[in-house]
Design a binder for these strands. Structure first.
Lengths: 171, 171
DNA sequence: TCTTTATTGCAACAATATTTCACAAAGTCG
DNA sequence: CGACTTTGTGAAATATTGTTGCAATAAAGA
């Protein structure tokens, strides 16, 4: 699916607030609400929009501790890596998991309610896994910027001056 | 604001899919749509729900490269740290920024379209900043698990068997 | 027991999303 | 060059969803 500047502008809005009415979005990007509706539907079904979610304040559900963990594996053969991916992914406290190059093999973002809970997780994920060579933990003091937004190409300077072409009216 | 098991169940649904109709949510948690509506509104206004967003597939907008960067600072006095926070946050390519303890001071998640773009960012953020002592980059090969979901206490085992109490009707 | 407060479900209502339709632009084929 | 097809549009009609008022229920305190 090819995205034009209107799609990009719509994506830019939705990734900040997907509860804005389609009419308001249309007004913001110079399109009719119907056009916005069709485009959003296409963006959803094509998988360009992967999910629509509420972002919850972790503190409000007693998940105040965010940790970063770099994990280095012993054996980097595919089956071992896949096994590790599965293990990490399955744990609900693992909010994000990335397989990376460099001095570590995995980077994890873990969200827990207490260091006791984290200690149990380290045992389960790392100490009881003979393929984990080493791990390094960073404890977050400030979640300075958190989100999943990506920069939208040209979305900032897009003018969106003219509705694409016709005016489809007979009056 | 005190959250009961219904609020938690609703949060658990919304952080996976905030486009589900309030009727369906009500059906899932054993409440009326009106009750769900009131609770969601309260969750939004109280800030427990921090945002409602669409998650965009980065590849679809040509942002295929995700990087982790650990940054170590020279001077850790508050004003310098705050200045760094501002710098990092302001850059749109910096998707996430955490101030951490441990062998680094900051952990960044950066999303870009090319390594050339990243090279420019390193210059801007690190080389041209005399307070940056060192930084280490990890290039992501696989975004194994990505999201902002937090585990909701007891949401998994909550039964939600009985609608709270009344049936508020006069027949 | 009686009162107060909070919360519910239902039903009417308002707002929003979705579909339908006639038309315009651009491309394709003869 | 002209007829035809495809794609996409705006406006209007329809369907769905969110929102609010109200009486009733339950819990807590006097």
């Amino acid at each position: 699916m090819q995205l034009d500047r209107f799609d990009l502008a719509i994506l830019g809005i939705l990734q900040q607030n997907n509860m804005m009415s389609q009419r308001d979005i249309g007004h913001a990007v110079n399109l009719s609400a119907a056009a916005v509706n069709r485009r959003i539907k296409a963006l959803n079904t094509s998988g360009i929009i992967q999910a629509n979610v509420a972002v919850i304040n972790p503190a409000s559900v007693n998940r105040e501790i965010t940790l970063f963990v770099e994990v280095e594996m012993v054996n980097e053969r595919k089956e071992y890596i896949d096994e590790a991916k599965r293990r990490f992914t399955d744990l609900i406290a693992v909010q994000q998991c990335y397989y990376v190059t460099g001095e570590a093999d995995f980077v994890l973002v873990i969200v827990v309610s207490s260091m006791i809970e984290y200690e149990q997780i380290t045992r389960q994920l790392f100490f009881d896994n003979s393929n984990v060579k080493r791990f390094r933990t960073f404890v977050t003091m400030d979640r300075v910027k958190v989100g999943l937004s990506v920069s939208i190409p040209e979305a900032s300077q897009a003018q969106l001056v003219s509705p694409p072409i016709n005016r489809g009216s007979n009056g």
